[in-house]
Computed example of a mutant assay.
Amino acid sequence: MFDRIRRSFDLVRASAQVLRQDNHLLLFPLISAGAWLLLVAAFALPVFGLGPVDGMGEGGLYSIGFLFYVVQYFVIFYFNTALVGAVMIRLDGGSPTLADGLRIANARLPAILGYAVISATVGVILRAIQERLGFVGRLVVGLIGAGWALATFLVVPVIVTRDRGPMDSISESTALLKRTWGENVTGHIGMGAAFGLVYFGLAGGSVLLAILLLAAGAVSPVFFFLFGAVVVLALLACVLFQATLTGIYSAVLYRYAVDGSASAGFDKGLLASSFRQKS
């Protein structure tokens, strides 16, 4: 466990070195988050504000849910493609701009849309299984979801560099995974452990500080409101950094899977141990 946490922090440090060269890479997940909030509002207002949900029927709800999944995934994959495209330019020695990343994503719109539709279909099917089978369904969904996340981990870099369709990109992502890390891959070492500790420390420290301030009895409600706002902004900043660093990591990992190179100061041994085998 401690070895996994250490390697997770090593990935954070290596990815941060790339980010320091191009701080504007943070704009891609930031714009994506803003677009996602607008998307949620666009779906929530008509469904919950302008009409009764109960009268729509199960079919109508699933149709709206599927459409929401498609548009949501499209937004996420579009800006992930732009981010990874910009990172690829940096790995090739260039100096990418926001426009460069968006240009690459615009050139891959059909593949991004197709991948969004496939992912939405998988998401709706898994949601239906979970709702109908209860606890067993949650176990099944957890296993299938983990396998799907693993198989598609390199899809966006494939779309960026190879300009392939969604099905071919999924197939190549799976093939690269098996060819580089073996047939019995069961999971990967990412940045989740490192950022999990960061989130836990931030949330726990905030709660502890709030308790101490309350015990002192000299804090106004306005201060607590501002304090809560700062904590929320700090958590959102961590989410933003995690999304950006994960995009950088996926681009570097794809390069390693293709030609065995360790780009941008990443340790080759760290990349080689990114995925673990079934015991």
Rank of each mutant, 00 (worst) to 15 (best):
R13Y: 08
S273A: 15
I64A: 13
S261K: 05
N106Y: 13
V136I: 04
V158S: 11
S32D: 08
G165I: 10
Y256A: 04
L253R: 08
S95Q: 11
Y69P: 00
G182N: 06
Q277M: 12
A128W: 11
S32A: 14
T161D: 10
V12S: 05
L176E: 07
F266A: 04
N184G: 10
I64V: 15
S32F: 00
Q130G: 13
M88D: 14
V160W: 02
T121I: 05
A229M: 12
L61P: 00
G192Q: 10
G201I: 08
L91Y: 10
V70N: 01
R6C: 02
W36Q: 14
E172C: 04
A82E: 09
T174K: 09
G147D: 04
G201T: 05
S274D: 02
R20E: 09
R7V: 01
L83H: 07
I76R: 09
F68W: 10
V160L: 06
L26M: 06
S206V: 06
F266C: 04
A203H: 07
L19V: 07
N23I: 08
I144N: 05
M1A: 12
L61N: 06
K268I: 11
G182M: 13
L83C: 06
L235D: 09
K268H: 06
V141F: 01
F74A: 15
L245M: 14
F66T: 02
T244M: 04
E183D: 12
D100C: 09
A42P: 01
L126H: 11
I89P: 08
F200H: 03
L214M: 12
Y115Q: 07
L98R: 08
L61G: 03
H24P: 00
A35D: 01
A128Y: 14
A216T: 03
G114M: 05
T180V: 13
L38E: 00
V40H: 06
M56F: 06
A82N: 12
A264F: 03
F195Y: 15
S279P: 08
A82Q: 12
M1I: 05
D10C: 03
A111R: 09
G190E: 03
N23G: 13
G57A: 05
A14Q: 08
Q130W: 00
L83M: 10
L45S: 04
F74Y: 13
G123F: 02
V71S: 07
L236V: 15
D168E: 15
R164P: 02
M88R: 15
S173Y: 07
R132W: 02
A116W: 04
G265W: 03
A35Q: 01
A120I: 00
Y115D: 04
S63Q: 01
V122H: 07
N23F: 00
L240F: 01
P166Q: 02
V124D: 00
A149P: 01
D163H: 13
R138V: 03
V185R: 05
G201K: 08
A218D: 14
E58W: 13
R138A: 04
G201C: 10
H188Q: 07
G85A: 09
L214Q: 08
L271P: 03
L39W: 00
S169W: 01
